[in-house]
Design a protein around this nucleic acid. Structure first.
Lengths: 121, 121
DNA sequence: CAGCATCCGCCGTGATACTG
DNA sequence: CAGTATCACGGCGGATGCTG
């Protein structure tokens, strides 16, 4: 069943909810990047997924693609105005994550340190 | 492959990315609601999914559950402080959706009207 | 370098029926 | 009323290999 189209919150959620979408926006916020640069900055993404996400964002008008007819081929990606309009949202999510969602590995490290100290004492 | 835990944006995205999650937060923003009320306001959700989402949000401390030992049973759900902290984000998404993501059916209706008028002329 | 083709597994979700 | 149980499906994402 399709999600409620009449809710603007949900329309935004649909755009933004891909696993890698926000990471792409985050990385492109700094400026234009090439395919391989995105591949490196998004550790672990498969070229297939990156390609699919970029194409989807391009179709939604959030990302612009510029192709340079060179050898070797060069393609650069950048945010459009519609894409940059997502940045305040991304900042809001960053703020929420930092305030309310502890980083698990940090917690684990902290807990480990505490228990180590306790064990040593 | 797990998404980058070190990125607070992504941690927030993981919390928020369930299909119904934001709708739940949106509806609970108005105040405490019962299971059946949520079932009605989230048109089309199955009780299974509603139950799963509520439990997940409860485990993350975003939603509080209050059970009343009555017959018939009554259970109420409300946002916690951590849940209410999501509201500015929801507002931001609403603003983005309204500004940048046209409602498809409205567009269709508008387009139909335009073409009808054109056809009548 | 920038991708597409193919195959496959997982998870969220949906439908339906049933219980305390 | 407030769920749980069970079954099934679709789509996203991952892995690998190949092309212009």
């Amino acid at each position: 069943m399709a999600v409620d189209e009449s809710c603007p919150v949900c329309r935004t959620a649909e755009v933004v909810c891909g696993k890698w979408t926000l990471l792409l926006v985050r990385d492109l916020a700094a400026g234009t990047l090439r395919f391989c640069e995105l591949e490196r900055s998004l550790t672990g993404i498969s070229p297939r997924t990156l390609s699919l996400r970029l194409r989807a964002l391009e179709e939604e008008g959030i990302v612009e693609r510029h192709t340079y007819p060179e050898v070797p081929p060069r393609v650069e990606y950048a945010l459009t105005e519609k894409g940059r309009a997502l940045l305040p949202l991304v900042d809001g999510m960053r703020a929420y994550g930092e305030r309310w969602l502890a980083r698990r590995c940090e917690d684990a490290v902290a807990a480990a340190l505490v228990s180590d100290v306790a064990a040593a004492a």
